[in-house]
Measured scan of single mutants.
Amino acid sequence: MQRVNMIMAESPGLITICLLGYLLSAECTVFLDHENANKILNRPKRYNSGKLEEFVQGNLERECMEEKCSFEEAREVFENTERTTEFWKQYVDGDQCESNPCLNGGSCKDDINSYECWCPFGFEGKNCELDVTCNIKNGRCEQFCKNSADNKVVCSCTEGYRLAENQKSCEPAVPFPCGRVSVSQTSKLTRAETVFPDVDYVNSTEAETILDNITQSTQSFNDFTRVVGGEDAKPGQFPWQVVLNGKVDAFCGGSIVNEKWIVTAAHCVETGVKITVVAGEHNIEETEHTEQKRNVIRIIPHHNYNAAINKYNHDIALLELDEPLVLNSYVTPICIADKEYTNIFLKFGSGYVSGWGRVFHKGRSALVLQYLRVPLVDRATCLRSTKFTIYNNMFCAGFHEGGRDSCQGDSGGPHVTEVEGTSFLTGIISWGEECAMKGKYGIYTKVSRYVNWIKEKTKLT
């Protein structure tokens, strides 16, 4: 034993070699072989497995989906700052455009905790909710729209109204504003409101030439003092309507412009014939205590009207009353817009006519005020429907199939267009061939041609 100890002390290297040989010859039971080890760690190889990531292109799944990435790591994937920024906006807080917040056709661009709407022409605001041009839906104005110097929408209202708090709607500024039905039992019968379409306001006024200088022999019209197929109006439903009495009662109609003036057809009036105007009328054979009678003290036909040349060209006249009318729910003026808007309103496509005229061709006159909704007829169809001249200051309205029309005794009465609950004068009943005849239409004086003249002559002093 002493000898062994001496050998170990003198030859430590020998001992180490012996131990190493023993270990190498022993069977290893701690580690699995290569094949079995792979069965336990069965993990798919990654895209760049075996390579240094710093030297390969980034992978979106590896960089940002398996674990949260930084902007720089995302930049490695896209290799483009702009594309990385677009991805980053949604990656950080989701897609803010998912709810489609942009209105009126706006395009949404996502941002971090926010979004941006790219608005089409005519709109602005956070969600493109603000109209900035009158060309689109009248700028959301209830009545009139004008573009300011910086191309912003400025709404306005006709006389007797003021802008509401929203700067879009119009509200009454006087007790009985024009064009409004205020009798409670008839307010439910107000005709369907007309909503502004998209309009090209630059070209809204037709490029028409008034044929002022045409000389033409007097034409022989049949029954051209021209509501057939209409309905009984309720008291106060058309408070701007008046009836004219002269040699015979209810020979023509008219509309209240203001307390002192009536507008009617020029062919209705004769110099030297006494005319009485009755406002607030409903049943011409009954006294309903809503009527107001006034005498006409002055007749002003349009300066281009000449019955000797043509009885229905420039067929418009103004009547001055001896005493002002007292405005109330049964006696209310009709609204008159400017030339541009009167023309736009007419193009809405349908209007209402009213009167006490004959209820059928050569038949009896109506006792109760009649009204009828009539569609506008395109000019080409209008011209083809008659052998008589249709001037540019006239328009056609009615039904091709016949059966409904204005008729004798309705002449001078109103053709009105309702705009968001307020009625505007767009025409004056003038003439036609018979009444409600198939293929024939009622012919009306186009008020847009005469609004400046009306307003100039009827100013209240």
Results as ranks from 00 to 15, higher is better:
225 T>W: 11
183 V>Y: 12
12 P>A: 15
408 Q>E: 14
90 Q>H: 13
125 G>K: 00
394 M>T: 04
166 N>K: 02
309 I>S: 07
192 A>D: 15
262 I>C: 03
369 L>K: 15
188 K>I: 12
215 T>M: 05
159 E>R: 05
342 T>G: 04
236 G>Q: 05
200 D>Q: 08
137 K>S: 09
245 N>V: 09
141 C>Q: 00
253 G>Q: 08
126 K>I: 09
72 E>W: 05
21 G>L: 15
441 Y>S: 03
411 S>E: 11
364 R>L: 08
461 T>M: 09
167 Q>L: 13
34 H>T: 15
354 S>M: 12
52 L>V: 05
451 V>G: 03
81 T>C: 04
454 I>W: 00
134 C>D: 03
300 I>C: 04
46 R>I: 10
71 F>C: 04
107 S>T: 14
83 R>M: 06
154 V>L: 13
18 C>N: 03
221 F>E: 11
133 T>I: 09
25 S>V: 15
209 T>V: 12
286 E>S: 11
131 D>I: 05
370 Q>L: 03
104 N>D: 00
163 L>M: 05
48 N>R: 09
242 V>K: 00
189 L>V: 13
26 A>W: 02
289 H>F: 12
395 F>I: 01
330 Y>E: 04
61 E>L: 06
258 N>R: 02
372 L>A: 13
209 T>F: 08
342 T>P: 01
12 P>S: 14
7 I>G: 15
59 N>T: 12
6 M>I: 05
352 Y>Q: 03
152 K>Y: 10
19 L>E: 02
157 C>F: 00
124 E>I: 03
229 G>N: 07
186 T>A: 14
361 H>N: 15
303 H>I: 06
157 C>I: 01
62 R>I: 12
453 W>P: 00
185 Q>A: 07
23 L>T: 03
19 L>I: 11
113 N>P: 04
28 C>D: 03
417 T>E: 00
57 Q>N: 13
6 M>R: 15
349 G>E: 04
200 D>C: 05
18 C>S: 07
124 E>S: 04
311 K>A: 08
429 I>E: 10
424 F>T: 00
236 G>D: 03
190 T>A: 13
320 E>G: 02
121 F>K: 04
43 R>K: 12
395 F>K: 01
383 L>S: 15
39 K>I: 08
455 K>F: 05
235 P>M: 08
270 E>W: 07
349 G>A: 06
459 K>N: 15
406 S>K: 11
365 S>R: 12
52 L>W: 11
304 N>K: 08
456 E>M: 09
151 N>R: 11
447 V>R: 00
399 F>H: 12
52 L>H: 15
305 Y>K: 02
122 G>A: 04
85 T>W: 06
333 P>N: 04
300 I>A: 03
445 T>K: 00
6 M>Q: 10
167 Q>W: 07
57 Q>L: 09
151 N>G: 11
401 E>N: 09
457 K>D: 02
327 L>C: 03
385 S>T: 11
107 S>R: 06
434 E>M: 12
143 Q>Y: 02
240 W>R: 01
247 K>W: 07
175 P>G: 07
263 V>T: 03
271 T>W: 08
82 E>I: 05
62 R>H: 12
208 E>R: 11
24 L>V: 09
56 V>S: 14
298 R>M: 03
311 K>N: 05
308 A>Y: 12
188 K>N: 12
108 C>Y: 02
420 E>Q: 08
395 F>M: 01
149 A>M: 11
